[in-house]
């Protein structure tokens, strides 16, 4: 592939950041969007998985669970506010 993992990760992070508070994305939503966006570069689902792992391991994104799993910017949830 012509793009590296970090580039995919950055594009995913931008997508999540832009929609924060309005729309949540599942890991699969991000992967599908990236496969489409980088179609010419032949980015695969596995490349997207690696990008997600980079984002989560560096704690730029966290997995959340609200009726299914989402990837979100770390934040304090409503339930934790007492």
């Amino acid at each position: 592939m012509a793009v590296d993992t970090q580039t995919i990760a950055d594009a995913m992070l931008a997508m999540v950041t832009e929609a924060a508070g309005v729309k949540r994305y599942k890991p699969g939503d991000l992967s599908k969007a990236m496969v489409a966006k980088f179609a010419d570069d032949g980015v695969s689902k596995d490349d997207c998985k690696d990008a997600i792992r980079v984002l989560v391991d560096s704690e730029k994104l966290v997995y959340t669970y609200f009726n299914g799993t989402w990837l979100e910017i770390p934040h304090q949830e409503g339930s934790a506010k007492g």
């Binding site: 997995y63 959340t64 609200f66 979100e72 934040h75 949830e77 934790a80």
Partner: peptide, 8 residues
């Protein structure tokens, strides 16, 4: 609670 977890 939907956010707590262990890293990664």
């Amino acid at each position: 609670g939907g956010i707590v977890g262990v890293k990664g």
